[in-house]
Amino acid sequence: MNATPHLSARQVIKSFGPTQALRGVDIDVLPGELVAVMGPSGSGKSTLLHCLAGVLIPDDGEVWFAGRRVDKLPEAERSALRRHSFGFVFQFGQLIPELPAVENVALPLLLDGTGRRGALAAARDALERLAMGDFAASRPGEMSGGEAQRIALARALVTQPAVLFADEPTGSLDSLATERVMDLLVDVAQEDGTTVVLVTHNPRVAAYAAREVVVRDGQTTTSVVSAS
């Protein structure tokens, strides 16, 4: 593992109206590391993830990825970064209900200009890799929550991103489905050497991570190495 941080935040401050969500957060994530960001509801952990991914721009502070100042990049470049280097898995709502699974997975490639045939082939490979090949033609509404999350995971990984951001990826799943999704996520990330930032309030999910960062009242309070 390289000691130079792959992704880092320095004194990040972010407010929504009068509510200060982040109050000077510092975090470093090493390449290939799986970091769990923990904290109670409303502590600012999702906001931190969004700032790290360039989805939200901090009011103050710096966000760095692979030597680039993410918070200073123009919108188009941040979009490109999300297309090429980042993958996302959220709790729900990130699949397009009208599209079958294979097209949902192919979306990042299509947006990046990959031809339809090539994009769909890559998407099928990604689905196969997660043992979801049989669901290629199914629409999100026809799947269980766990199956939909695995499709979302396939889409997040189809571009072979450098960093995977997962925000409560198992928040709406039962324990069995949670276990399946997390096993896949960890396995694939380790195989590809993908850095994973995992936001969760569930200690069992956090236990999959190599390191836990706890956020409380908009600040990182502790960073501990997972026992597992």
Binding site: S79, A80, Q94, I96, L107
Partner: peptide, 9 residues
């Protein structure tokens, strides 16, 4: 969702 997976405005 498209924006999330990298579509520009």
């Amino acid at each position: 969702t498209l924006r999330l997976v990298g579509a520009s405005p």
